[in-house]
Amino acid sequence: MSRMDHQRNAIGKPPIVTYNNVEKCYGDFTALNGVTAEVNRGEVVCLIGPSGSGKSTLLRCTNALEQINGGEIIFDGAPLPKGENNVRLVRRRMGMVFQSFELFPHMTAIENINCAPVTVLGMPKREAEELSYSLLKKVGLVEKAHSYPSMLSGGQQQRIAIARALAMGPEVMLFDEPTSALDPETVGEVLSVMSDLAGEGMTMIVVTHEMSFARRVSDWIMVFDKGRVIEEGRPDNIFKHPTEGRTKEFLRHVGVEV
């Protein structure tokens, strides 16, 4: 472990999210069983591991959609606050992208994007529209500004969802299997938007089953199993020289030769 930590510190970036022995239970089922990990500013961290190992749960605890039962999560130097108003202040600084897009179906693409800046940040409508257009350009969908989500393909919806999250100017982006619900032919366009984002230095925590993306884009990989991080390291190390038996098993299961 110390070997890997040393390698990682060479990246030389301060932590933005720190998980200290985080526990999360649903009834008497333990979904997170003492997760200790760190995400540094500017890093792309991929969470991989078998179904039910707690990856989504960790993301949802990170922006307090779920309350943790033990340990602590530190965001930008302070533990996640209690109380709705303080939690909201933290959530504004994190963007989240869901497997099932969750665009608001009664709003057009551009309304989806400028809704939160206007209602939550009180941004003037004009300014929000300009921002939305620049984000639509970024995800390559300017011509779909006035389309409703139902008229867009899955890949297009997910790109709008990414733009919607970016509109709040987040410091961290949380992605929960952003391409798992997509037709194979639209996976690429979403991954390419995410790669661009990574290239711009956005901090990203990505739950994914796209191993080639994890390998190519991430700075750091955390392998989950049964509510714990069983192994973490640089992508090359994890994919070429996994140390844990369960990591090897998982990688073989998803078709990676180890």
Partner: peptide, 21 residues
């Protein structure tokens, strides 16, 4: 769907804004 409230809350909406918008 619950995902819709998750999406609104994740954007920093209050419970009230979530209901109304």
């Amino acid at each position: 769907r619950k995902g819709q409230s998750d999406a609104g809350l994740a954007l920093g909406m209050s419970k009230w804004q979530l209901q109304v918008k």
